[in-house]
């Protein structure tokens, strides 16, 4: 519940700031503004002062203490740094609506059509002898174990 409270505060504060300062979420996420925001919201963030035992064989189940110097890195329900700014379909870039328009403003193609086209093996689809479909599920397992982000 403390993490949910932090998330609510962050989301609502972001909304208030962008409206009051007439800036976009992209502006707020930019350098400078993001540091001001982080400083202002710091005291309302959950999970502070994590203590790790260096003698523990494993990290915590939620990923905490995987990195002893930065105990929260890679843990569940924490923000993940991005290489590029987000571009979701909702105006606030929260991600509740997937992106549906291209940079030209035209609707993006149906992902199912792309998937079917890319993976269409024709009448004689290639068969690998090195991996089975288990590789896919193992990759998904690792992915979700690392992310665990709602």
């Amino acid at each position: 519940s403390s993490m949910a409270r932090s998330a609510d505060i962050s989301e609502i504060a972001s909304d208030i700031i962008t409206r009051r300062m007439s800036i976009t979420m992209g502006d707020l996420q930019g350098l400078g503004m993001s540091q001001r925001f982080a400083t202002a919201i710091d005291s309302n963030c959950a999970l502070k002062n994590i203590m790790c035992n260096p003698a523990d064989i494993y990290r915590k189940p939620n990923g905490v203490c995987n990195n002893l110097k930065n105990p929260m890195w890679g843990s569940s329900i924490t923000a993940q740094p991005r290489f590029i700014p987000p571009h979701y379909g909702d105006g606030k870039n929260i991600g509740i609506i997937p992106r549906y328009l291209s940079v030209s403003g035209e609707p993006l193609p149906n992902p199912r059509h792309i998937s079917n086209s890319v993976h269409n093996g024709g009448i004689s689809p290639p068969r690998g002898c090195q991996f089975t479909v288990l590789l896919t599920f193992f990759g998904q397992f690792v992915d979700h174990d690392v992310i665990s982000t709602p």
Binding site: D8, I9, I12, A13, I16, I17, M21, A40, N44
Partner: peptide, 16 residues
Amino acid sequence: DIVSECVAEAVGLVDR
């Protein structure tokens, strides 16, 4: 600072 004010307002709304 306007950012701090907005965060404080959000805290008030969430904790209300």
